[in-house]
């Protein structure tokens, strides 16, 4: 068994060993070992040229990553958390996403950007948000949310290999999670959703940290004779419409779990996809389980109340099934 953190580190090591164009940069990725200890030991193995501690200037080090990618390198940029990444949004939206288009296909930006996302550690309103949907909104970039140890590893390899800018969101509650890692196996396409558990009564559609809450909810539902299928979206842009629609076409009910705020969320997007492509398959209204529309509070009981929890998913699924 391997932790999610170690799986990301293993992928970083492989990439740094095998491709001289690859380097890692970000705040405290070197001597400190990474804010979430992901890059611990890499400075020693690869040196300061390839494991670069940056000044605190998200916009400029993400922009420099874009420039280095244009210049033929394969940079991996770590931004400490999604909230900090907002300082770099100019570079993401106005440069990384549009360079290929604006130049009529002459230039490409093969950069991989990793960042931690999500709540659950009482880190309050500037370190806990889920803003993946902001990124998933933007044509020209791709967005991945690995929920498993295997995906944490495989998706980073795929992101660096990809000729387009890829953003990877690692839920901060997952870094310590253990799971199997097979570095020899041929990984599935990162752009396809996965069925993590099969079921027949309702589809629980989730990504990142919420996948595990959905799986726990599915176990509880089973005890109440509700068979829940769990869909892990994996890729947030492009979204795998086919797998989502196929699952709901089997179960005829959908609960979408998303740690973002409900308004304008990916959960909203998926609901719209179901309305467009699976309307006549639905036996009940789609239900969204999202974070309450408040900044994430510090106090533990309030943070728990704000974020989607297993009980809320169970309740939503039962409502969906009961209302069928």
């Amino acid at each position: 068994m391997t932790t999610y953190r170690d799986a990301v580190r293993t992928a970083l090591q492989t990439l740094l060993r095998e491709d001289p164009r690859v380097f890692l940069m970000g705040e405290d990725v070197g001597r400190y070992g990474g804010p979430y200890a992901v890059s611990k030991g890499l400075l020693k193995e690869f040196g300061e040229e390839r494991v670069r501690d940056t000044p605190l200037c998200e916009s400029t080090f993400v922009g420099a990553g874009i420039g280095a990618a244009l210049g033929g390198m394969r940079p991996i940029v770590e931004v400490m958390t999604v909230n900090f990444s907002l300082l770099a949004l100019d570079q993401v939206v106005n440069n990384a996403a549009v360079m290929r288009h604006m130049s009529g296909g002459q230039f490409e930006v093969p950069i991989a950007v990793r960042m931690a996302t999500g709540g659950g550690k009482q880190l309050a309103a500037q370190h806990s948000h889920s803003l993946e949907n902001w990124y998933a909104h933007i044509p020209g970039i791709k967005v991945l949310a690995p929920a498993t140890v295997q995906d944490a590893h495989d998706m980073l390899l795929a992101a660096v290999e990809d000729p387009d800018p890829v953003f990877i969101f690692e839920h901060q509650m997952l870094y310590g999670m253990e799971g199997p890692l097979d570095t020899e196996a041929t990984p599935p396409s990162p752009w396809k959703a996965a069925i993590r558990r099969s079921g027949s009564d309702v589809s629980l559609i989730a990504y990142g940290g919420s996948v595990h809450k959905a799986l726990t909810a599915a176990e509880k539902l089973e005890k109440e004779r509700v068979s829940a299928e769990v869909v892990d979206l994996r890729s947030l842009r492009p979204l795998d419409r086919e797998t989502i629609v196929a699952s709901v076409s089997r179960t005829h009910r959908a609960v979408v779990i998303d740690e973002a705020w409900k308004t304008g969320s990916l959960a909203s997007e998926i609901s719209a996809i179901l309305a467009e492509d699976a309307f006549y398959e639905l036996d009940a209204p789609v239900v969204r389980v999202c974070t309450l529309e408040v900044p994430i509070p510090y106090a533990k009981h309030l943070e728990e109340a704000a974020l989607p929890q297993v009980d809320r998913i169970v309740e939503a699924a039962k409502r969906s099934v009961g209302g069928g």
Partner: peptide, 20 residues
């Protein structure tokens, strides 16, 4: 056309050249 937005790109291009 984003004022200042080209500067980090230039820094990155120079970084790539230096590393290569």
């Amino acid at each position: 056309a984003i004022v200042g937005g080209g500067l980090p790109i230039a820094v990155g291009l120079a970084l790539a050249d230096k590393m290569k």
